[in-house]
């Protein structure tokens, strides 16, 4: 078996993790971003600051607390074992939870910006035309925020793909379970397998570049709409 095939595992695992995390973030981040864009609550800056925390903290800080939280003796760790029969630490599920928190600002911030650029009048006009809240969101807000959604999803996906510190601390290095592509590269370098490290690194560079290029091409075709 060539080295390429063994490296496919971590690559696929990373892509699978990034996809799942992006989908979960889309479901959680959309209502959160919408609330932040509309609320006049005094809690807004507090929630905004909390959402932005993963941007500034070293991944090791988050990783450390996740380890404590996921510990089989902790409340969350214990409950998780009861419900699923698996531990959270050093498991794929643990990686998903940690990554969702870690990538949250990359979903919420572009969405919030997109939602805030929609005029109050546009939403009011939709109400006048008998559209209820969910109808308004689906048929007016979502299409007008398409650019924000694309940016948010690509950034969340790419950011999850590129994690290293936090996944190393929370997940370790179990092949097929928690051995992600960034960890595989690290391992190759540590064991002086530079050729394999090159192959994986170049693949990631190309992938990341292609993803970002898609976003910018999309943005060019869909200039910001005022409405």
């Amino acid at each position: 078996m060539g080295p390429n095939l063994t490296d496919f595992g971590p690559l696929w695992l990373s892509i699978k993790l990034a996809l799942i995390v992006t989908l979960i973030l889309l479901a959680l981040g959309t209502p959160l971003a919408w609330w932040l864009s509309q609320t006049r609550s005094r809690l807004k800056p507090v929630i905004e600051a909390m959402t932005a925390l993963p941007l500034v903290l070293p991944p090791t800080v988050l990783g450390f607390y996740f380890l404590i939280l996921f510990n089989p003796q902790s409340f969350l760790g214990k409950s998780w074992i009861k419900i699923t029969g698996e531990t959270l630490s050093f498991s794929f599920s643990g990686l998903v939870i940690a990554s969702v928190i870690y990538s949250l600002p990359f979903m919420v911030q572009p969405l919030q910006t997109a939602f805030e650029s929609i005029k109050r009048e546009t939403l009011d006009a939709a109400s006048i035309l008998r559209a209820g809240p969910i109808d308004r969101f689906m048929s007016v807000v979502a299409p007008l925020s398409l650019r924000g959604f694309v940016t948010a999803c690509v950034l969340s996906f790419a950011h999850t793909l590129g994690e290293f510190g936090i996944v190393l601390m929370v997940g370790g290095n179990i092949p097929g379970q928690t051995k992600l592509v960034s960890i595989a590269i690290y391992e190759h370098v540590e064991t002086l397998q530079y050729a394999q490290a090159h192959k994986l690194s170049l693949t990631l560079i190309c992938f990341a570049f292609a993803a970002l290029l898609c976003v910018y091409i999309f943005n060019r075709r869909h200039p910001v709409k005022i409405g």
Partner: peptide, 20 residues
């Protein structure tokens, strides 16, 4: 009664057409 359930049609100064 929320705006979407009142029988009142409001015309905005700007028209407020949906740009998309």
């Amino acid at each position: 009664i929320p705006a979407q359930k009142r029988e009142a049609g409001y015309l905005f100064q700007s028209g407020a057409l949906f740009s998309h």
